[in-house]
Amino acid sequence: MAKGRTKGGQGTPATVALTREGVAFTTHAYTHDPDAASYGEEAATVLGVPAERVFKTLLADVDGALTVAVVPVAGRLDLKALAAAVGGKRAAMADPAAAERATGYVLGGISPLGQKRRHPTVVDASVLALETVYVSAGRRGLEIELAPADLIRLTDAVTAPVGRV
């Protein structure tokens, strides 16, 4: 993978952050279908990538604090496991409007990278078995492919088994 740039010089906060850090990444653009039932599954299908390699970014409220969870689109987020991973007791999905305000991204385009504010982040442990992983680049129809170690390092994430099939 070469050090990436989004074509046309227009980057998202996620691609700008990766470029600033000198991280190797590749962007993958596709035409988003507004009728798609699942943004992540759509990306996996259109890009021809196994769903286990495409991760979705979700925000949850863990004991009153917004927490980012990054899990494969092939599964679901285990809220109890997420709470335990950050030393919390209870977790619930965050209000969508609160997630957009806190990250600076719109639903379906929330990237774990380049968010307005840093939040505790947990990446599903399955990422450790992958050479590269796909996450949202910060807008619908644009994915970033990068090494899991870079994703974990740049988000200050912990890894834990928080995704369930």
Rank of each mutant, 00 (worst) to 15 (best):
A2W: 13
A2K: 15
A2S: 14
G4K: 13
K7D: 15
K7I: 14
T12I: 12
T12G: 15
T15Y: 01
L18E: 12
T19Y: 09
T19H: 12
T19I: 08
E21G: 01
V23Y: 04
V23K: 05
H28N: 12
A29C: 04
A29D: 15
Y30E: 12
Y30N: 10
P34G: 06
P34L: 04
A36V: 10
A37I: 14
Y39L: 01
Y39S: 15
G40I: 11
E42R: 00
V46S: 03
V46W: 00
L47S: 13
G48V: 05
G48L: 04
G48Y: 05
A51Y: 03
R53W: 02
R53T: 07
R53G: 00
V54P: 09
A60S: 13
A60H: 08
A65N: 15
A65I: 11
A65L: 11
A65T: 15
T67I: 11
V68Y: 04
A69H: 10
V70E: 06
V71S: 13
P72C: 04
P72S: 08
V73T: 15
V73N: 09
A74T: 15
A74C: 08
A74G: 15
A74N: 10
A74L: 08
R76P: 00
K80I: 07
A81N: 03
A81F: 01
L82P: 14
L82I: 09
A83T: 14
A85Y: 05
A85W: 02
A85T: 11
G87H: 03
G88I: 11
R90T: 14
R90G: 01
R90D: 11
A91R: 04
A92I: 10
A94H: 07
D95S: 06
P96V: 07
P96R: 06
A98P: 03
A99E: 05
R101F: 02
A102E: 02
A102M: 03
T103V: 01
T103P: 02
T103L: 02
T103D: 02
G104I: 13
Y105W: 10
Y105S: 09
V106D: 08
L113T: 11
L113P: 07
R117W: 01
R118V: 07
H119E: 06
H119I: 00
P120M: 02
T121D: 03
T121H: 00
D124N: 06
A125Y: 03
S126L: 05
S126W: 00
E131K: 07
V133N: 05
Y134I: 01
Y134V: 00
Y134T: 02
S136K: 01
S136G: 07
A137I: 09
G138E: 12
R139A: 03
L142Y: 02
E143R: 00
E145Y: 03
E145N: 03
A147M: 08
P148M: 06
A149H: 05
A149K: 13
D150C: 02
L151W: 09
I152N: 06
I152D: 09
L154E: 14
D156S: 12
A157T: 14
A157C: 10
R164P: 09
V165T: 15
V165H: 12
